[in-house]
């Protein structure tokens, strides 16, 4: 269009053409934006549609209270509790690693580290989050578990502990990166006020910056939780795929995600109860993620600091 702009006096037709073209382009761009909306709708629709077929076979009460999950056995039980327990256990172990490490790194990078160190370390830490999860699974199974077995000789080859530890390591960059952004958003005058009162850097960091950035920290932890809950390959490789109602991380157990993988590896016919059960499991996974996000959202709202 550059030539036409430089030409003085555009004809009416050319003007109209440009207007129409702009309209058409806008419709295309809007359509692209709507892909995101349709994806969400499609996810919800598919999960509900296939799960409703599942719940025609399985009473909701059994699903929520039965303590065994054996949809593929002759003696089928459909209690989601063992899978939920596995998911929560690995998530808790992961958080016990990621929250202290991630927050410490964030405080260090935001409040103590020289500019150069921060600019170098941040991208490298982000690489830690970019490693394919299947590689982390290999790491958990072939390095972390044997290492833990030195201290805990009874530890089985598949266990939730090493899977949880590795997931924790995996989400450290997410937690630290979001927390650091939150802390850096705390205005400088608050720090300066604290320094003027004679506080050291650490005191300022812990008593002024961290409380001031609390809503951002909550968001970071929630992000970490969502990652840990939805993590699949590490648990599928290192925690075993046997549903097991326990909160003891030293035991092997399947998570919701590991179950979905296990079923998908076999060749289940479309429309069978086993096929539908993975959608019910997926629905529960989405609900757990949703619950944590709602908690996070309300925490963020409640502790939001306005500067």
């Amino acid at each position: 269009m550059n030539q036409s702009i430089s030409r003085p006096g555009l004809s009416q037709n050319a003007l109209r053409y440009r207007k129409v073209r702009d309209r058409i382009v806008e419709v295309f761009l809007l359509a692209a934006g709507l892909v995101a909306v349709f994806t969400t709708l499609a996810i919800v629709a598919i999960l509900l549609y296939e799960s409703s077929a599942f719940f025609e076979h399985v009473p909701l009460k059994d699903f929520l209270t039965d303590t065994m999950w054996t949809p593929l056995f002759a003696d089928a039980h459909y209690g989601i509790l063992p899978l939920v327990a596995g998911t929560l256990t690995t998530t808790i172990v992961a958080l016990l690693v990621a929250v202290p490490l991630g927050t410490t790194i964030a405080i260090y990078l935001s409040e103590f580290a020289p500019h150069k160190v921060r600019e170098t370390v941040k991208p490298i830490l982000e690489l830690l989050g970019a490693v394919p999860t299947v590689v982390y699974g290999y790491f958990a199974l072939t390095m972390v578990t044997p290492f833990l077995q030195i201290f805990m000789p009874d530890l089985p080859g598949f266990n939730m502990l090493s899977a949880g530890l590795v997931i924790g390591l995996m989400i450290v960059p997410y937690v630290s990166s979001v927390s650091e952004d939150a802390m850096r958003a705390v205005p400088r005058y608050m720090r300066e006020g604290s320094y003027a009162m004679g506080a050291t850097r650490l005191q300022t960091a812990l008593r002024v910056v961290v409380p001031g950035a609390f809503s951002g920290l909550a968001a970071a932890f929630i992000l970490g939780i969502s990652r840990a809950v939805g993590e699949t390959m590490v648990v599928a490789i290192a925690a075993g795929m046997q549903p097991n109602l326990t909160f003891d991380p030293r035991e092997p157990a399947a998570t919701i995600t590991a179950y979905i993988v296990q079923v998908s590896l076999g060749d289940l016919p479309h429309g069978s109860i086993g096929y539908q059960s993975i959608f019910a499991a997926g629905l529960v996974l989405m609900l757990i993620t949703l619950i944590f996000n709602v908690i996070g959202f309300s925490l963020t709202r409640r502790f939001r600091e306005a500067y």
Binding site: Y49, G230, T232, I260, T289
Partner: peptide
Amino acid sequence: LAGVPSIVYGLLALG
């Protein structure tokens, strides 16, 4: 969508 677990995308794709 950025926070949806990747395996859920798998379920979407399967269905």
